[in-house]
Computed example of a mutant assay.
Amino acid sequence: MRSLFFVLSALSVMALAFWVYQENHRTREALAQTKDLQGEIGQMRETLGVLRAEWAYLNRPDRLRELAAINYDRLGLVPLRPEQFQRVSNVSYPAPDLPPIMVPIDVMSTQEGAQ
């Protein structure tokens, strides 16, 4: 009876050891993947910072003014003036499309029934 107990105890310890080994391996893989993702996020943030700096550099008002002057003949760009702006209430928006009439109503019969 004791030997059976020792054998079962040894098997359970080995099973638990195998389970702990697998969990340790999965945890290390998850940590390595997390580290890789953190590095990738850092690189993307750095790239985004560089792109924002380039965008700010390319959109300098003096540079854009100079480009507009150089390409005036081809593009016909003119500087903005205050009188070019209007109130939103002055904008004429197109009328919305009405949905098709699916169930027509006979107006003549409703007028006769009202009298």
Rank of each mutant, 00 (worst) to 15 (best):
D73G: 04
N24H: 08
L77P: 01
M14I: 15
M44G: 02
F6E: 14
T34L: 15
V13P: 01
R74P: 01
R2S: 12
V78P: 01
T47W: 06
T34N: 13
N24E: 15
D106C: 04
A68I: 00
L8P: 01
R60A: 13
V13K: 04
D73H: 09
L48C: 03
S89A: 15
A32K: 14
N90K: 06
M44K: 14
L64G: 00
V13N: 04
A15P: 02
V50M: 07
P104T: 08
T110A: 07
F5G: 02
V88W: 04
V91Y: 05
R81M: 06
D97H: 08
R45G: 09
L75T: 12
E46W: 08
A69K: 07
R28E: 15
S3W: 09
V50Y: 03
E40C: 05
M44E: 09
Q115W: 13
P94Y: 03
R65P: 00
P94F: 03
A69G: 03
S109E: 15
E66V: 02
Y57M: 13
D97W: 04
A10N: 02
A17W: 05
R26A: 11
H25C: 09
Y21Q: 14
P82L: 04
N71R: 08
Q84H: 15
W19Y: 11
Y57P: 00
I101S: 02
L31H: 04
Q22N: 13
K35H: 10
I105H: 07
E83I: 00
L4S: 10
A30G: 01
S109P: 00
V13Y: 06
T47A: 12
L51A: 13
S12I: 13
F85M: 07
V88K: 03
W55E: 03
Q33E: 15
F18V: 10
L64A: 05
R2E: 14
G49S: 10
L48M: 09
A17V: 06
E23G: 01
L4T: 07
R52H: 14
N59I: 00
A68G: 03
R87Y: 07
M102Y: 12
A15C: 10
V88L: 15
I101G: 00
L80C: 08
D62Q: 14
D97F: 04
A68W: 01
Y93Q: 08
V103A: 07
